[in-house]
């Protein structure tokens, strides 16, 4: 039986009683991130890739570029899709099989952040009638130590930031030959901050135990100027004032996270 189901109640009480005393089980401040590091171009066959380590969480993102048909409603724009898989090797709690709602939510929230921030100007990637460039960013969770959303957004953004575009000749991609990058504006690249509410306490960057104990979470994704995605998760709730406060915190934390983008 999964350790999460057995221990979750006991752990939750333990973690909550700690938080009520102003402490976190791993000794961090409430609004403190764990150690974050990123490696880019880790999969040379991909057009862009990044491995992000956030505490013990490890997520790899890879970008593949394809010539595809555009969406019918936007025939003159390239397309971009972010997808994700929570690999069962990352946690006892992840099952093999078709993506569950948690996986889909994760992929969609990261996707919304990247897409809404208008990081990639898709109008530049029209090739010919019925032919546009498609950008496929796929995330794989390799080790689950809590807080997938923040690590996932960093990994996806870095894979795009460091991408190389394949050469295009006569409407065909030349694989393995590149014609420069996507030339992204770092100020637009989103950063995500996941706030977790346990009882009345709100903490940043939950570790795996804290994430198991959560009542509700608020994922706030911002770039320099805008909030570009939000997702409230879990059965608990937030007050208006809490949401606004967390939006402020998200912009504040972005200053540190953004350093990973160079």
């Amino acid at each position: 039986m999964s350790k999460f189901s057995v221990l979750s109640k006991v752990r939750k009480e333990f973690i909550t009683s700690f938080l009520d005393k102003g402490k976190r089980v791993d000794g961090r401040d409430f609004m403190e991130y764990r150690h974050i590091e990123a490696e880019t171009n880790v999969v040379e066959n991909a057009e862009g890739s990044a491995l992000v380590r956030l505490g013990t969480t490890q997520i790899i993102a890879g970008l593949k570029v394809e010539i595809v048909e555009p969406f019918p409603q936007e025939p003159d724009r390239g397309i971009m899709i972010t997808n994700a898989e929570l690999l069962p090797l990352a946690s006892e709690n992840f099952e093999p099989g078709p993506p569950d709602e948690r996986t889909i939510e994760f992929a969609r929230v990261v996707d919304r952040g990247i897409r809404s921030a208008e990081v990639v100007d898709l109008s530049k990637y029209y090739i010919d009638e019925g032919k546009v460039l498609g950008f496929f960013v796929d995330l794989y969770v390799l080790d689950y130590g809590g807080n997938l959303f923040d690590a996932g957004t960093l990994a996806a953004a870095l894979a795009l930031k460091t991408a190389r575009l394949p050469k295009i000749e006569n409407g065909e991609l030349i694989r393995g030959e590149y014609s420069g990058g996507l030339d992204l504006d770092i100020n637009k690249l989103p950063t995500s901050t996941t706030f977790t509410k346990i009882g009345d306490n709100i903490i940043l960057d939950p570790n795996v135990d804290e994430e198991m104990a959560y009542d509700s979470q608020l994922v706030v994704t911002v770039n320099d100027d805008y909030v570009v995605a939000m997702q409230k998760r879990g059965t608990g709730s937030f007050k208006k004032s809490e949401v606004l406060n967390l939006v402020d915190k998200s912009f504040e934390k972005r200053k540190d996270l953004k350093k990973l983008y160079g």
Partner: peptide, 18 residues
């Protein structure tokens, strides 16, 4: 034993998940 390949494992086209 479950063997999985990432969608970006090869230089060629974007692979399928699953």
């Amino acid at each position: 034993c479950i063997y999985t390949m990432s969608t970006f494992a090869s230089l060629e086209e974007h692979g399928r998940m699953g």
